[in-house]
């Protein structure tokens, strides 16, 4: 066990857990934040993706020991933002959600993209989402949702 301090959804937090725990488990079990999902447990599917210092990271491959001092945003924090509302609305309007298990990760990936590139091309969207597997949608409606969000949320990113 060791104390690790980091910023979680805007607030400083200290946890006392083994450094070799997966950060995903810290979020889900210890902190009750179950919005980040486990799909594969080996960094392939992106369902567990969170933002670390504003960029997309798979929390299932992140040991707690790597989070010290970092700024973490999960879907639970992100959903309180204006940007989230734009993305949520776009995902619904475009039908980008089916089973939904990949969706929180997909939203975090979209945020990470738009934060760095507010007007992405379809090719750039595809590359940015390539680490987030979706088995339901064939991705087409997710691409449309990200495009819609970029348009509707112009100036926010």
């Amino acid at each position: 066990m060791a104390k690790v301090t980091f910023t979680l959804n805007g607030e400083s937090i200290t946890v006392d857990e083994p450094l070799n725990m997966r950060f995903l488990d810290i979020l889900r079990m210890k902190l009750g934040l179950t919005g980040s999902k486990e799909g594969c447990g080996e960094g392939e599917c992106g369902a567990c993706a969170v933002l670390i210092d504003g960029q997309l990271v798979n929390s299932c491959l992140l040991p707690l020991g790597s989070v010290e001092g970092r700024n973490v945003m999960t879907i639970e924090g992100y959903r309180k933002t204006k940007r989230y509302k734009i993305l949520e609305d776009a995902f619904i309007e475009e039908g980008a959600v089916q089973c939904g298990i990949c969706t929180p990760g997909m939203v975090m990936a979209s945020e990470s993209l738009l934060n760095q590139n507010p007007k992405p091309s379809e090719k750039e969207i595809r590359i940015a989402l390539a680490g987030n597997l979706c088995r339901c949608t064939g991705y087409e409606m997710i691409f449309k949702a990200v495009k819609r969000a970029a348009k509707e949320g112009e100036g926010l990113w």
Binding site: T34, G35, K37, I75, E76, V97, G100
Partner: peptide
Amino acid sequence: ESIRKVDSEEKISGRAPYTSD
């Protein structure tokens, strides 16, 4: 004519309680 899916919001926001949650 399409309408907004009724369960999208709880899924997008991470609130939907899947079994492992």
